[in-house]
């Protein structure tokens, strides 16, 4: 330590901190640089709102993928958000703290399972189940929504738990001491006081669902079309990039980068909303 000195240490740490930020900046610049020129050349309207995706004919309309991504994300939220939020309330308000301390890390472990494993289970278990019970190809919007719904659970549950635990115990005691039941206390007081954190947890889960690629490729079926039922096969924006990038060249390659630009902007918007919601909560305190 003597050798480098206090100033040297500070510089080294600063360098490491900046490396993360510069990586983000470089990635953003790279994607924008590769993708934006294409979008303007091809036409914003044609690129975003045309349903014709035929790279070998020079047609690059990503509308079906945008719709698919939105539906898959929406489906994941319909499944994951209520399960996650209800689970978080159960764990914080009904389960003794000692047990909660074991269950919460276990749920967070769900996030450590590689997404390819989720995809694998989706293909082997979920898709046949859907095919045999509801018809269709099995690999579908519904399958992708269910798998993603499970994958966002750790995000939703653990951030919801944090925000519910941040509600002062005195609110609960004040309510219970007035003869409220635990359930009345939850829905009259705790939900209100932890609302912003819960919303943020859902938005962050949403970001994860939009960005997920591997599991979705494995279970969504990947045909380019606008879904008419949950049982249809769909291809999301992320799947589109991952599936075609390996052999794409020229304009096709640029179109895939442009797809990345669309995703990137969407996720930035979501994360900004989440951090604004979370900051509002901090200010209120």
């Amino acid at each position: 330590m003597k050798l480098i000195g206090e100033k040297g240490v500070k510089r080294i740490l600063m360098l490491t901190a900046f490396s993360a930020i510069s990586a983000l900046l470089l990635i953003a610049l790279f994607i924008l640089n590769e993708g934006l020129p294409f979008i303007f050349k091809y036409g914003v309207k044609d690129f975003l709102f045309s349903s014709d995706w035929n790279p070998h004919l020079g047609k690059y309309g990503i509308y079906p993928m945008i719709v698919a991504s939105l539906w898959v994300t929406f489906g994941a939220l319909v499944i994951g958000a209520p399960l996650g939020v209800a689970g978080a309330f159960f764990l914080t308000e009904y389960v003794p703290k000692s047990i909660m301390r074991i269950i919460k890390p276990t749920i967070e472990l769900l996030a450590a399972i590689p997404s390819v494993v989720y995809g694998f289970i989706g293909v082997m278990v979920l898709a046949p189940l859907i095919r045999n019970n509801f018809g269709g190809p099995g690999l579908s919007l519904l399958a992708a929504s269910i798998i993603l719904g499970i994958m966002i659970l750790p995000t939703v549950i653990s951030i919801s738990i944090d925000s519910i635990m941040a509600v002062p115990q005195s609110y609960r005691e004040g309510s219970l001491a007035l003869g409220a039941t635990t359930w009345q206390t939850i829905h009259m007081v705790t939900v209100k006081a932890s609302k912003s954190g819960i919303i943020a947890s859902i938005i962050l889960g949403m970001g994860r669902a939009i960005g997920e690629t591997m599991a979705v490729i494995m279970v969504a079926g990947n045909s380019v079309n606008i879904p008419h039922s949950p049982l249809d096969s769909v291809r999301t924006l992320t799947a589109n990039i991952a599936l075609e990038m390996s052999y794409a060249t020229g304009l096709h390659r640029q179109a895939l980068f442009a797809t990345g630009v669309v995703l990137f902007i969407g996720i930035i918007i979501l994360n900004s909303i989440a951090s604004v919601v979370l900051r509002k909560r901090a200010v209120k305190k």
């Binding site: 609110y171 004040g174 003869g179 039941t181 209100k192």
Partner: peptide, 20 residues
């Protein structure tokens, strides 16, 4: 217990109004 707490009210050391 709920009926008990309606009969036996409590005021705490830290005044904490509910968020309403």
């Amino acid at each position: 217990v709920v009926a008990l707490r309606k009969k036996v009210g409590m005021v705490f050391a830290m005044p904490v109004p509910l968020p309403m």
